[in-house]
Design a protein around this nucleic acid. Sequence first.
RNA 1: GCCCGAGUGGCGUAAUGGUAGCCGCGUUCGACUUAAGAUCGAAUUCCGUAAGGAGUGUGGGUUCGAGUCCCACCUCGGGCACCA
Length: 873
Amino acid sequence: MKAYDHKKIEKKWQKTWQEKKTYQTLSAKSAKGKKPFYVLDMFPYPSGAGLHVGHPRGYIGSDVIARKKRMEGFNVLHPMGYDAFGLPAEQYAIANKIHPRKAVLDNVKTFERQLSVIGFSFDWNRTVNTTDPEYYKWTQWIFLKIYNSWFDLSKNKARPIEELVAVFAKKGSEGASAAHHSKRAFSASEWRAMSALDQQTVLMEYRLAYEGYSEVNWCPEMGTVLANDEIVDGPNGPVSERGSYPVEKRSMRQWFMRITAYGDRLIEDLDGLSWPEHIKEIQRNWIGRSEGLLFRAPVKDSDIVIETFSAHFEACHADTFVAIAPDHPLLSTLLEGVTNKSEVLAQAKAITQKREALGDKYKEVEGVFTGRYIVDPLGNGDLPIWIASFALKDYGTGIVKCSAHDERDFAFAKKYDIPLKAVMFPRDEALRAQVQNFEICFSDSGTGVLTEPKEFKGRVAHEVRDAVAEYAVKHGFAKQKVSYKIRDAVFARQRYWGEPIPLSKDTEGILHEVSEKKLPLELPNVKSYEPSGTGESPLASVPTWTRAGYETNTMPGWAGSSWYFLRYVDPKNKKAFAGEAELDYWFNKKHVGGVDVYVGGAEHATGHLLYSRFWHKVLFDYGLVPTKEPFQLLRNQGIILASDGRKMSKRWGNVVNPDEIVGTYGADTLRLYEMFMGPFDASLPWSTESIIGSRRFIERVWRFAEKIETAQNGKQNQSEPSYEQALHKAIKKVTEDIENFGFNTAVSAMMICLNEMEKADYVSVADYKKFLQLLAPFAPHVAEELWELFGEKKSIHVSGWPSYDESKLVSDTVTIMVQVNSKNRAELQISRDMSSDAVKALALASEKVQTALAGMIPKKIIYVPGRLVNIVA
RNA sequence: GCCCGAGUGGCGUAAUGGUAGCCGCGUUCGACUUAAGAUCGAAUUCCGUAAGGAGUGUGGGUUCGAGUCCCACCUCGGGCACCA
């Protein structure tokens, strides 16, 4: 037999698989009863640097699963594509002075070449590229769908905006229970009397995609807006990563997505998903739902009524002042008639600016008295309203009632000499009746903060909370309200390289959408795709573009990636983002989510994985997708670090290129090693030293084929081959481990099996071929080559999956450990079916046991069948 | 500060509450070879010549029995961070 030549074998089979379309996915129509299975990878940014050895880790894992499922007879959808809009592609293009479109094409080629040598079973006919107009046509289409929606709170779902218009015309703003940020109320007749422009402004406050303003990072020297990851900390505040120029906050017109409307559903639906628990937890924390109380309180000597929000209202009876955000929209109205109004406003502005400039580093507790008081709804008298640096306008109502029983409120009150009072729980008589005994659980720790003894684990606080809430609501002091930490997502970039937003504004300021027939609205060619210098997108300097009134902002990087998994299902559809029949076929309605297996990095927890869920839910509300969640099962691959323990990066010069590893050791070895090196989700250092173990294993498998060929004669009749148990164990282990992403232990099981087969003096061809089938998902080329060597004409990758015999997993005799007082003292070889009493007697009879007992009388003997005997003396 | 997760040989790691260290790397010895490499065989947690003893970050606890369960602490990694 020839020596193992990975180069020849891998090239041969990659070519053959392509020619024979071995990995072609069948459409719903042609599947003919074959069950679907959708295995998806997070598609990459085709950056200029190409792949390092860490990138394919996730792809290899998903490929192993896809291959196994294909062998099991599923119609597998295992696609790959490119997420090529966005900052990295644009920066690469600017740095290399080429058009981003050209840069993307070049980089895609590099990626495709690098991926192709690793032997993935992708169906390249279904590839997508977010920058392809035929693709982003549908990104724009979905955007318009979202833009033309409002969120009906009573139905808890998105509905067409025309239906809201109809409600307004009939019943005014009170007619709809909607998620919005409007401050105004209007009657039906007022609505009908509004100008088109005014109506547009009102509707904008309800749409799920809306225009607004937000703070951006503005770099005056560079004349451009910077993303958060383009900024680093300088000695005097934030500076640009490139060039270290100062960066400041600037308010700019933006588009937003009202993801906040879906806060509850985004939390609730996590329960049905098979995702890593910590990713769910990150999303829950990010959304940050808290239930609290909304207190309505009249402002003294005015007709203003304000609402305060408290999520921790346990100590509401101790409230002695009110804090309002320094940038709160109500501030100006509130200060009407106050003598030093302008002075107070100026101070509020100073605080706001300081807070924005310093960001996280601003820790000071600052404030100023407004001169106003509220009349406490709980009967605690008049409480002063302070502007406070810690109050956030976007959380709750932006106004909070404060007491001594909060560390931060306490510090503020001490600084400004605001009177405080402490309550021992509960102060109110009626409340006390309901929750008696609770007061003993709290003590004043000296700072004014009420603490609950640890042994109660927060239970008491919870019960007190519930009791207080019930009481306050019942007596009309407050109503329940939910608040979220999550903010609406900014959906605009002042950049060139993104999907154009398909809207235009006429000279009257009325917005028009680009009709479906005219989609895609293509990105125009420009002379300079670098930032314009004014902070606007380069599109603002394209006369034909601005003359038509088109929106100059482009979509952010996450637009195209929020729905690409839908396109793979039906990538060439011209009439819809995907056909209904295909979606129905591929998206399993028995699950909450559609894609069966999704593999990618954990760093997308609060970005892509949240945005996709949000878009999917909007589409679901319109019945355009069959499942309410996009991804049923999610697994994160660990990051492969360099051998020095740092991240692989050009900067450290520690990058290992997969091309080199494939060249030296072969794709099969690379694949096997990346699966074997440790748990799939663990971050592990790369070790070119250790990879030899995987190579050796493959070579041993290779040489073993020869041994089988020569051993054909003579020993076939051996009835119970010594390796049989190991083989059946391996089949069981590999089958189960692949399903559970336990690739490292699956490889280990195959190694154990091979060790046993090598020790045996005869291995049947049939058994060896079963072994090859186990190996096929991990090392597809060498498995295929050997498969062919044994006369198979059809590919191993569609050959079926071996099954194991439960009865062959156990042997008749077992070795059990005999312990005396839990210490190992002797071993026993016994027959598996020996009775408990017989085993115990045998153990006691052992000489070693008698020595260890040293005359002690056994009090108790524990027998764990097949494992051990423990003699307790 | 708050919320997750993890700590096991020289290294990567493995262990349904039941013989801790499977599998692999490395190392040592042996076979083959003029030699090197490759390959094959044996050994390899630590202390001890051995008998034996110790041992899964630290200290407690539950249990006949704990790497695994419970409590406290230490270290590392991840997420959030004025969210009332």
